[in-house]
Design a protein around this nucleic acid. Sequence first.
DNA 1: GCAAGGTC
Length: 627
Amino acid sequence: MKVIIAEKPSVGRELAKVFGANTRKDGYIEGKGYSFTWAFGHLLQLAPPQEYGYYGWRRTNLPMLPQKFKLSIRKVKTKDGFVEDPGVRKQLDIIQKLFDEASEIIVATDAGREGELIFRYIYSYLKCKKPFKRLWISSQTDEAIKDGFRNLKPGSEYDTLFSSAHCRSVSDWLVGMNATQALSLSAGGKDVLSLGRVQTPTLAMICARYLEIKNFVPKIYYQIAIQVDKDGQVFKAISADSFDTKEAGEEVFAKVRDVASGFAAGAQIVDVEAKPRKEPPPLLHDLSSLQQEANKKYGYTADQTLGLLQNLYESKLVTYPRTGSRYIGDDVFATVPQLISSLLEHPAFGKQAGNLQEAKLTKRSVNAKKVTDHHAVLITGVKPTHLSKDHQAVYDLVAGRMLEAFHQECIKEITKITVESEILFTANGTVIRSAGWRSVFNDTEDDKKDEDNTALPKVKKGEELPLADKALLEKQTKPKAMYNEASLLKALETCGKDIEDEELRDAMKDSGLGTPATRAAIIETLLTREYIIREKRNLVPTAKGLAVYEVVKDKQIAQAELTGQWEKRLEEIRSGASVQEFKAEILDYTRNITQELLVAGISLGQKPEQKANSNATDLVEPEINSK
DNA sequence: GCAAGGTC
């Protein structure tokens, strides 16, 4: 009998279905000479410090550099602390039994670094020696699955991928566990002050932005606004230049030729520019963009959106939620017309679904090369019944975005009128000529400035018009906005770099902080540690968060670039480079950061303590490759 | 008591 192990039940069931296996057992499905089983994500994790003899939180334990890492069963938090997850233990027993009976194992965990690690940790923990092959597919349509099974790879082809995955895991443990204990001890040891490759740069981004805003000195400046009258239709124009002082503004202001100053036609149209602008439909949603949208529209936290989406997924209403791709492959695209028809009776989208049925679908979101472990979030076509208000709202974000993504572009006409009256003024107007995808939610602009006019009257170059009114405006420069969940999620994708272009941002996916599956949890961790709090929709650092930031802000652990550097090295390891050098650097860094933090003496009302004695001399490097 | 990663 062959055993196939998937990363999660949904995939295991899907594979079984394609094979026509349908005998449901506890924790697996049987049929046609195969058994299909699954994990629930990572079942095993690197064992905690005490399993290597590092008891308690003590300076003399640091740095903790286990010679060989152990695995332990995933824990859950209960009222009596952390205990082994009983469900995980049970599933491991089932997998063990199947592996024992197996002639061959087929690895069908997600096609990626963590998917490989999930299987290899199970294999290693169960001390299994059976041969295994690898299924490597990036879409779960029947055809892709059949094709994948015809092209199974030798398991050993992914040994270097496992090496890079284990390196990532061990490095995070070494740096995170040691830095956390070191900083906590240096602050007196009463409080957990956690640090990590992802959470600390995230905290740093929030703190840096907060301080930038706090230290921002607004600058006052002046502009002149005029109301131009074209046959009774009045439009607003703003001076192209601004003035640093009120006096300078007033001097020019006095010369602007409005009707009240005795000018019946004091403004001349210098230039009229009208050009169409095409806005392509947005890409389909990945988890992060969906969380951002839900936060903007409904104020849901990243964690809440993920929870609601997970429920919809478990009810088979939407596809896999923790995806980082905003694209689908051609095979899934072929099912889109059916999905659109499933929305014909939807109260809000029915009409648009009908229109879209007739139209040629835009294929901007169709690109098989950009589908990694999972494709973009879609509805499944199963009709929802009795959804709660919140579930319905999230479902509609998915369904509506699907209609938008395959819709036609929106065509706008952008008009810019330049008016002269002593100085130059400009008026901007935007008119939607063809709503295209924007008709789905009937959303107005998202980038509209309040000084923009919607429509401007038809005027001609050289035309002279009266000024109905003029005003001297006092304005001030504004600081950047505080981070909220939406803007933080976006910043995490690009390590804080501001990139507006959707496709360019997408290209940077691999160099972001955290993953779609973990970002909500990162924010929650910072909240649990009381490093940040929610103030309305903003994420604001606390005194504790700022104190931690002050200690680590110039250290590597607070730099988003650290992840980028690691990723580069891990990719080299995956393509065959030796792990030794990277391993040595990580150990070196662990020793350094631990030492630095122990003497830092964070000022949370505690004074710095004595320098810790070094016990790192005779430690052997941890074994990274399990072979 | 602690990381980051995955999922129910």
